[in-house]
Design a protein around this nucleic acid. Sequence first.
DNA 1: AAGGGACTCAACCGCTTCGAA
DNA 2: GTTCGAAGCGGTTGAGTCCCT
Length: 307
Amino acid sequence: MGRPPCCDKVGVKKGPWTPEEDIILVSYIQEHGPGNWRSVPTNTGLLRCSKSCRLRWTNYLRPGIKRGNFTDHEERMIIHLQALLGNRWAAIASYLPQRTDNDIKNYWNTHLKKKLKKLQTGVDGNNRDGFSGSQKISKGQWERRLQTDIHMARKALCEALSLEHPSDLSDLKASNGSYNSCMRPIQTSTYASSTENISRLLQGWMKNSPKSSKTTSETTQNSSNNNIVSPEALESLFGDVSQSVSHDETVNFSQEISSFQFESKPILGSEEAPLSLLEKWLLDEGAQEHEEDDLMEASLRDTAELF
DNA sequence: AAGGGACTCAACCGCTTCGAA
DNA sequence: GTTCGAAGCGGTTGAGTCCCT
């Protein structure tokens, strides 16, 4: 019954990945595509378990990952989304396709938590229990705020859907649902060349610096712009709205198409929507300036109160 | 220059969910 | 319907680096 075990624990290597291992993994994925991680160690000869390979790819080697400092914009999105979704890093990461959930999680734990804590103590003295004190927002108020957020999200979705181009739907179906953020057929060549870049960069890196793979990862970043939203995240935000809208419609409400059509955020593929409208909703300071800022402020305050 | 505490982030661990047998 | 492994996810750890004294 069941399947054969993923990997035997004996002889499995742990710890930091070497550039050589990275190259092997990248080359393999370039050839076979991601997925079926169980077979990766066997087929590549890597002494890593499948889980480790998947993690290495999704958090580090995957093209389109942006590394380095988070922008103000990203920071605000994370704060707001965290307030809305909680610690669902994968869902949050789907709104920031260039960032991995691991990155966002780390950034939250190392920077934002502190920042919010600071903010809270600055704003509000040293009261730390979330629901008492004159400046605190009651649980009820928080819920109302959440409702407002959801309402705004719905509005954004409706607007988005009204902009739909029906022709997109056929593309979705043609795409077969893989490696596709915006209903376009897979562009294997884009993928291949991107991965080639990684390999090349890795090789170049090896020549230049025999040290940590950190540098390598930095070189692998590119400026792809996957404006995509996972269905789970959409569901979290929109709740019943997504039920009242057909899957294809939900998927299609974007106008922005990424140059990279990548997989690892599990395949956003046929179930993604682009970010632009949500971003607008979340962050556009022009459109809904006051309301938006109030909400953001509130989110910041409320989130800070949790610490 | 050296020591040590603080910080960062890649990677691991363990749990949950999903799907194949 | 049940079992079990793969995949995915969030929490945690620890090695490496930075910064201050």
